[in-house]
Simulated scan of single mutants.
Amino acid sequence: MTLLDRALSSKNAVLAFGGIVALATAFTIFNSDTPLFPPVDDPTGDPATWSIDQLRRWLDLRNLHPSPTATREQLLERVRLNIRRPD
């Protein structure tokens, strides 16, 4: 057996091992009890102190998709109009 024959036969073993690792990784990611990327909680406290990203996330979670060009003041006003205060 030449060196070329050995290299080609070992390539199959490397590919098989890589496939097994890829399948095990995919199974672990998609079939685990705890998600790989847990959902982000709602921001708490006064909306006036939230960042623009938090304002956008709060609106997105309620299907109130804000305009990509909306200013912070516009986002804050929309959150305040839609927030439900406990009675």
Rank of each mutant, 00 (worst) to 15 (best):
R57H: 11
R72E: 07
M1T: 02
S67Q: 03
I29R: 01
I52Y: 14
R56M: 01
G18L: 14
P47E: 03
F17Y: 12
I20F: 01
F27P: 00
R84N: 09
S51D: 13
T69D: 10
S10G: 11
S10F: 10
I83L: 08
P43H: 10
N82C: 06
P38N: 05
S67P: 00
V79G: 02
R72A: 06
T69H: 06
V79A: 04
D87I: 01
T25L: 13
W58Q: 04
L36V: 11
T25S: 14
I20D: 03
A24N: 08
V79H: 04
P35F: 03
A48G: 11
L8Y: 11
R56E: 03
R72L: 07
D33N: 13
A48W: 00
A22T: 08
T34R: 14
S9L: 13
T28Y: 10
L59K: 02
V21G: 01
V21Q: 02
P86R: 07
F37K: 05
N63P: 02
N63K: 01
L3D: 01
F30P: 02
R62S: 00
A22D: 02
N82F: 07
V40E: 14
D87E: 14
S10L: 11
A7Q: 12
A7L: 10
S32D: 07
A22M: 10
R80F: 01
P68W: 04
V21F: 00
A16F: 01
G18C: 09
L4N: 08
W50K: 05
G45Q: 04
A22E: 05
T69P: 00
L8S: 10
E77P: 04
A26L: 12
I83S: 02
T71Y: 04
P66S: 01
V14Q: 11
R84T: 13
S10Q: 15
L4E: 13
L55I: 08
P38A: 03
H65T: 03
T2D: 05
L8W: 12
L75D: 00
A13F: 12
R78Q: 07
P43I: 11
I83A: 02
N82W: 03
L15K: 13
L36C: 06
T28A: 13
L59A: 02
R56A: 04
P66Y: 03
K11G: 12
S32A: 12
F27N: 06
T2Y: 03
D5Q: 14
Q54T: 08
P35L: 07
D33K: 13
G45E: 06
A13R: 12
Q54D: 15
G18E: 08
L4M: 04
R72N: 06
D42T: 08
S10D: 14
D42N: 11
A22K: 02
S9R: 15
